[in-house]
Design a protein around this nucleic acid. Structure first.
Lengths: 318, 318
DNA sequence: TTGACAAATGTTAGCGCTATCATTTTCAAT
DNA sequence: ATTGAAAATGATAGCGCTAACATTTGTCAA
């Protein structure tokens, strides 16, 4: 028993017994069995993380933040990939909960009703990431996608573009809100035209960015700026515009979303909405482990904001 | 006991008891406790996966393959991020092994001596991925990085380039082997010049691709083709060359490595060495779960090969 | 020195499963 | 019906740890 205590909470054991125990543990190469611990204690050090994609750069940055923050702690990250499917998410939540996790990190606000029920009844702390919204299950960290894309839209208008279009792939809830932000800002400025919106349910790729721009320009050749739902599409848009001999930013303005590292390196550098993905992952884990240690966050919902990074691709002259 | 059997191996139970059990399980919403099962059976359904990076596109593709292949099975994927550090890898192996995993998937051939010792003594199946080599711990699936980059180098020479250079970031073991492949092929053709090799220990980014090209061209302005250690660098190289007014492929040829989706969409499309990352992940998991089910792979080492995808960026005219 | 109290350590039971072996049931062949 | 073997089911113990409480040791003021 004292050994068990020494290993879990060294402060509860006198210095010299601790020493002795450590020596023996080293000599024997003893490693505690997490399964036995989990069974006896009725809980684990597992933190379940559910993301909709493991390949999307956005989520890999978030994951990195989570892994970095968990590094060296007792917390075990367990990753689940819901592949943008609420049903798979539900099944993952079920699996995770059966493991009696200490905490759960989920993406977005749009859990299915069944998932919500599971989460309400769950005996663990929960952090929702990627977005900000009114009714967290427990805690939440993210930003407003509507506001961010509205701000990007205004930036295009401020730069002198008059007929902005929007391209988007895989309309997951966050993409839809970004589209809604664009629509709202464009309508408010009186420049909204549904013909300048091109979307597809397909997963977003650079190639798809090319195709969507081709579509957009054939439907609405007068388009003079494109807000892209993400940076992969923006990169494709850049290539496609260049292939068509369109000058950026003179003939057409280009704005991405997320500000992946490549946007600054592109030729010309591409304007994008910076989001704080690494910080989001890191802080999500910190909030969670903090709460598990009894330190509640100041507010349950943390808004990390966004930043429109203006670059040459929207620096219209004249 | 019969219930336990019914849930784990329904064939061992008569049809009508199975039915009864299922009904009760449904009614009660019973979910087995994996910790108790792990403790009693002395093993788990956990498959530990250790990758050096969660953000690198290459590994996220592999991970996706693994997750897809594990989808719906009883196998639980547990992901560890070694961040290219053999020490962190060792610590992850230790953590994973304490969980009595059914299997382990590791990246590369270059485990530390200590890690090797742990793995030798481990009571689980092991698959090494990303590379092919002579002495697998158990099973292995990947390809030869030396051969692949040598082939890319020959492609550049065949295309008429005479002074090929090489840029690389973060010289992990696989990058080093790719560099070695380039060197060997260039030397064999009598066109090797160490002045045309630029490397940095920094992590690879598109921006870094720009910088490395700038470096290379200032050190060796006569360079007429660049083999990039990966596609991020290649994208940066593309942008940087264009910024400098170099015509691709006329003035300079460009070749990436991995053939990420964006290479085909670029302007001009960029030649790259295609690697089969998704398949590698998928097959690694299949080999592992197959072996766990008693079906040994035909050969312990599987070579997935590679393919040089020639595109406009190396289509030199004249 | 003593007593009172806190700190440190020890005892016991049990977490929810599964391996193993024992028993019962089933069913085909006599 | 009877038998024997196989199939199905059941009883028991124990996996390695921790919660809860019990006991011992240490510390300090009176």
């Amino acid at each position: 028993m004292t050994v068990s205590r020494a290993l879990r909470d060294p402060d509860k054991v006198s210095a010299k017994t601790l020493e002795k125990i450590k020596a023996v543990v080293d000599r024997l190469g003893y490693v505690p069995d997490p399964a036995a611990s989990a069974l006896a204690a009725g809980k684990t050090n597992v933190i379940g993380v559910i993301v909709p994609s493991v390949t999307n750069n956005v989520f890999s940055d978030v994951m990195r933040g989570i892994y970095e923050a968990a590094e060296g702690s007792k917390w075990q990250i367990q990753l689940g990939n819901s592949r943008y499917s609420p049903l798979e998410e539900e099944s993952l939540v079920r699996t995770f909960l059966s493991q009696k996790p200490a905490g759960l990190i989920l993406s977005g606000l749009d859990q299915s009703e069944e998932t919500s029920k599971l989460l309400m009844g769950a005996d663990c702390r929960i952090v929702q990431i990627m977005e900000c919204g009114p009714d967290p299950f427990d805690m939440m960290i993210g930003f407003s996608h509507v506001d961010a894309s509205a701000a990007a839209t205004r930036h295009l208008l401020d730069a002198g573009y008059e007929r902005p279009g929007y391209i988007a792939a895989r309309l997951d809830p966050r993409s839809q809100r970004r589209l809604a932000g664009f629509k709202a800002a464009a309508e408010k400025a009186g420049v909204f035209d549904p013909a300048r919106i091109v979307t597809t349910p397909r997963a977003s790729t650079v190639t798809l960015g090319c195709e969507l721009v081709a579509d957009l320009l054939s439907k609405a050749p007068q388009t003079d700026a494109i807000l892209c739902n993400n940076d992969d599409l923006a990169l494709g848009a850049l290539f496609e515009c260049q292939r068509r001999g369109l000058r950026i930013p003179e003939d057409i303005g280009l704005c991405g979303f997320n500000d992946l590292e490549m946007m600054a390196a592109a030729n010309p550098p591409v304007t994008s909405v910076r989001t704080f993905r690494l910080a989001m992952g890191r802080e999500a884990l910190r909030m969670l482990t903090g709460a598990l240690a009894g330190i509640e966050p100041e507010t349950p919902v943390v808004d990390l904001g966004y930043e429109v990074i203006a670059r040459q691709s929207t620096a219209r002259v004249g």
